[in-house]
């Protein structure tokens, strides 16, 4: 049995894929030095022409990766800062994502975009603390949000092997997580959810670092309320079949979502369940960032806008009645 950290899980996935497939390559800022924790040791092992340090030209190197993919490579692009995805939204949503449909399926764009540290990192303020997975799910880019080190490994492997563009958000709040790994690390299929803790009274959908908050709340309420912790792992495509089955058992739903409330992922999860006619016994709830939130710097202000365990506990209690 070994301890695997989340960052090491991503690093091993990347190393395994670089070793397995000569078409895999990595672009990003400071990837040689491994600054963001995703790539330590990879440039020394695979060379600077496969693990490529780029200048600070996010828009160009994001589309450069697309061009390389169209020419047969399988690039992985790393972004140190989640808010950089706003800068390259054109290159991902408007270029890579659309080329397959717009060419009538003549070509596909197997590019993986990784953000090792998405969401608040305590004290990084307004332009470094976004968690924009809802945005990518909205435009239809495959969007992954693994919570555990083994899922981080397995989903990154699947993303790299996937024929389409995929964005993988590694939540800042999960990067320090370590877990005992008893079995061999394996690919995790895109679009398959995971139940971390079975329960009978309430289904709590929590993704990314919020899984740990949901588990803590479930433990705290054990004996009073039996909480099922449902981790979609993939934001888009979403595992509706698994969620329907869970809600059919529990009849109650709470969603924890580190997005802004308006048009966020949580809204879609609730709507998707309701539309399917799930037999909900009480009105569902969601815990999110407020509408249009911009995270302020001071720690107390930053925390005030993020979904908290207190809010989640209150929401779980509320749906019981």
């Amino acid at each position: 049995m070994t301890k695997l950290s989340y960052a090491k899980g991503l690093n091993r996935a990347l190393a395994d894929e670089l070793a397995r497939d000569p078409a895999v390559c990595v672009f990003g800022e400071d990837v040689g030095a491994g600054l963001a924790g995703l790539t330590p040791g990879l440039q020394a092992r695979f060379g600077a022409d496969r693990v490529v340090d780029t200048p600070l030209s996010e828009q160009a190197f994001t589309s450069l990766a697309l061009g390389a993919a169209l020419a047969g490579m399988r690039p992985v692009v790393e972004f140190q800062i989640p808010s950089l995805l706003f800068l390259v939204f054109e290159q991902i949503a408007n270029q890579a994502h659309k080329i397959s449909l717009m060419t009538g399926g003549q070509i596909t764009a197997p590019v993986t975009y990784v953000v090792p540290g998405s969401g608040s990192r305590d004290g990084w303020a307004g332009q470094h603390s976004d968690h924009p997975y809802s945005l990518f799910a909205h435009v239809g880019v495959k969007t992954l949000l693994p919570a555990t080190p083994a899922d981080a490994y397995g989903l990154l492997v699947s993303a790299i092997r996937d024929p389409d563009p995929v964005v993988l958000f590694a939540p800042a709040g999960a990067l320090a997580v370590r877990e005992d790994v008893t079995t061999e690390l394996v690919p995790v299929p895109i679009g398959s959810a995971r139940i971390h803790r079975p329960g009978e009274d309430v289904t709590v959908v929590a993704a990314g670092a919020l899984v740990y908050d949901a588990l803590a709340v479930a433990e705290e309420l054990a004996g009073q309320i039996s909480v099922e912790v449902f981790d979609p792992r993939t934001v888009y495509p979403f595992d509706w079949a698994a969620l329907s089955a869970s809600v059919a058992r529990t009849g109650r739903l709470v969603v924890a979502d580190d997005s802004n409330r308006m048009c966020g992922f949580g809204a879609e999860v609730i709507t998707g369940v309701v539309e399917r006619g799930a037999p909900l016994r009480t009105a569902p709830r969601r815990v999110t960032r407020p509408d249009g939130a911009v995270l302020p710097f001071a720690l107390g202000l930053d925390r005030a806008l993020q979904p908290s365990r207190d809010q989640l506990r209150d929401a779980v209690r509320a749906v019981m009645f």
Binding site: Q59, T62, G67
Partner: peptide, 13 residues
């Protein structure tokens, strides 16, 4: 928008 795509294909070549 095509310029970096061309650069990427050239890099791959």
């Amino acid at each position: 928008a095509g310029a970096p795509i061309a650069a990427g294909a050239a890099w791959a070549a």
